[in-house]
Design a protein around this nucleic acid. Sequence first.
DNA 1: TGATATTGTGTAACCGCTTACATATTTTTA
DNA 2: TAAAAATATGTAAGCGGTTACACAATATCA
Lengths: 360, 360
Amino acid sequence: MRITAKQVAQKAGVSLATVSRVINHSGYVEATVRTRIEAVMHELGYVPNRTAKNLATGRTKTVGLIITSLQSPFFVRATEGIQDVLEDKGYHLLLCNTKFDTQIELEDLQLLREGLLDGIITTAGSQTRAVMLELARQNYPIVFINRLFDELKGEANRTSYVLADLVYSGRTVANYLLQLGHRHIGLVCGSHNSTANQLRLKGLRQGLQDAGLSLASELMRSVLYPNETGRNTSASIGPWAYSETLELLQAHPEITALLVFYHPMLPGVLQALRDAGRKVPETLSLVGFDDFPLAPYLDPPLTVMTQPVYEMGRAAARLLVQKIEDETNQVAEPLVLRPELIIRRSCAPVEVSRWQILAK
Amino acid sequence: MRITAKQVAQKAGVSLATVSRVINHSGYVEATVRTRIEAVMHELGYVPNRTAKNLATGRTKTVGLIITSLQSPFFVRATEGIQDVLEDKGYHLLLCNTKFDTQIELEDLQLLREGLLDGIITTAGSQTRAVMLELARQNYPIVFINRLFDELKGEANRTSYVLADLVYSGRTVANYLLQLGHRHIGLVCGSHNSTANQLRLKGLRQGLQDAGLSLASELMRSVLYPNETGRNTSASIGPWAYSETLELLQAHPEITALLVFYHPMLPGVLQALRDAGRKVPETLSLVGFDDFPLAPYLDPPLTVMTQPVYEMGRAAARLLVQKIEDETNQVAEPLVLRPELIIRRSCAPVEVSRWQILAK
DNA sequence: TGATATTGTGTAACCGCTTACATATTTTTA
DNA sequence: TAAAAATATGTAAGCGGTTACACAATATCA
C-alpha cells in the first residue's frame, strides 16, 4: 500500500542509498539521476516515513513544551513565540499540559528519555526538581522559562534559562503602590510552589522593606491548584480564587490594594470583589500580572505587570534548537528580560479609598 | 550509552522477545522471569525507545491538532478538552498552529502521510479542501470540528464531525436582537472563508428573513487575517478589527447592534467603539461569539453566543481515538451540539439607543 | 600524463523494537 | 493417559529509512 523508498529505488533503477541522498539533498547525485528519481517519487506518490527517519537519525525534530495550564495568556503567548521559531527551524511542538499534576509532568519528561523528544521547554517543574536536575545533568537539551536551578550553577550541560526579572516585577509594583499611599497590600497568588511566584514575592518584600515596611503574611493567600491534590481534568481555578479572596477581604478589611499573581484567578477575584462590595479602584486598588488583549476593556481597565512573553518564547525556542543541534555542553548564562508596569485605571491613591470607605 | 532492550535481555539471560513481552504486558511470561527482567531493567535504568516502537508498530500514539490561532478562547478550551481525553487514552498532542497560513497547514497535514501522526483533529481547512478530501478518502483518521464536507456525504471512511449548531447560533442572536427592536445589525466577522462564519451568517440571514428583513451586505465586514496574504508570525489581528469596525460605523451610523464573530477581534472592536464615541449598550448593542472567563467583567459585561467548547473537544478526541483504533470505515454521523445565548449587559432595547443618540 | 581530488553509486550494517512462527513444556480435558 | 489446550520462550524477519565504507568514473593539476 504505502510506497517505500525501496520501491522508488527499484523503479528508478538505482540503489536505496541514492534515493535517500536525493530525499535529503546529501552527498553526490548526478543531476539526471536526481531528476529521474524525483519523477518516480512523484509518479508513485512517495512520501518518506518520518518514524523510520527518526529511528535512523536518532532525532525526531520534535520538542516538548511543558506548561501547567492553557488558561493563562502567558502560556498562550509564549507558545506562539516558541512555535513561530520552531516552525522556522523545521521543528514540531508536542504540547504537554500538566494541569499542575506532578504525575503527568513526570510522564512528559520521560518522553525525553524515550527519545520521542529532542528537547524540552518548560515553565513547570516545581514538583519535579530532582528529575529535572537529573535530566539536565544527563545533558538533555532543556530550556527553563522563569525558572532557575541554583544547583546547576557553573555546571556545563545543555540547559538554558530565559527569565523575566520577576524580583524587579515585585519591587516595581510595591513601589508603585507604596507611592500611591497603600500600606496594606493583599496578595492572592497561585501555587506558592511556583518559582515565578516566589521571585515576585521576594521583590515585593524587598520593595516593602526598602520603605521600612514588611509584608504581613496573613495578607497573603495562595490558592491550591485543583491538581495539587490529585489527578483531575481541566477544571477552573475560579472557585478557589473566589473563596480565598472573599475570605481574605473579610478577615482583613484594612487591605487597600490587592495583587493577583496568576491570571486565571482573575475572574474569581473580580467576582469576590463585587460580592464584597469593593469597588475598583475607589475602594480597592488591583494589580494583575501578565497583560492580555482585553485588559484595557475590563471594568476598570486593569493595571498589570507584564513580561515580554512572546519574546521570551522566541528566545527559549532559539536557545533550545541551538542546544539540540550543538552537542557541546556549556555553562548556561540566563537570559533575563525586563518586565514592565502598564498603568491603566485599577489603582488609585489610598486617600481616595479611605474617603470612600468613610463616606459609606 | 543508551541501554537497549537487547542488553537487558542479555543481562537477564532471556531473549529480546521476552523482554518485549514484559515491556508490553503481552503474551505469556513466567512470573519469576518477569520479575527478574524488571529488576534488570530497573538496575540498568532501561527506558524503551519510543521511536523504535513507533516504527515497529506503525503507530505513534500521537495526534495532530490543527488550529488557526491560539488567541481565541475557543481553541484554548477545545484543546483542553482534547488533551484531557488524549491523556486518558495514552496519546500525545502535536500542536499545529497554522496562523491562517495555507502553506503551514499543508505541511501539517502532510505529517499524517509521513506517519508521524495517527490522526488529526482540525478546525481549519478552508483553504485546503482538496487535500482534506483526499486524506479523508485515503482513510486517514480525521475529526473535523465545526466543519462539514458535503462531498463526503454517505462515503464510508474514517472521518468524524463535531459541530455546534451554528446556524441556530446565528438565528438565535438574530431573534434576540430583533426582539430588542434592532433593525440595523452590523457584523464584523473573521475570514469569510471559515465554515463556521458562513454557518453563523446563514442562521443570521434566516432569522432576519423570518422577520421579513434581510441582511444588508454593506453592514458586514470581514477581516482579512494577517496570513491570508502571506506567511507571517503571530501578529495580532487587533489593528484590522479596529479599522474595519471604525469604517463600518462611520459609513453606517444607523447600525444599532454589532456582532463580533471572531473573538480575537474583540479588543480592536472595543477600541473602535470607544473612538467612535459609541457607548455599549446605550448607543450600540454588542454580541460576541464564544464565552470566556472574563466576559462578565468587561465593561460592560458581554453578551455572548457560546458553544460547549470543552465538550466538543472531548468528543472530538474520543471520536478520533476510536477511528484510529478501529480500522473499519464507517459513514460519519455528525455530532451536533447546541449553542447557548448568554445574556449579560451589552445589549439594550433599541429605543434606548435612539433616545441616547437624540439626547446628544 | 600520471597522481590526486572530486564526483557518483552501490552494498550492507545499523537504528531498537515488535511479532509471526516454531518449538518446548505444562496443564486441562475427555 | 493420550490428545488437546494453554503456557512459556526463542529465532529471525521485518518496520523504512540513514550512512560508513568501498569502489568506479571523471575532473583537476602540476
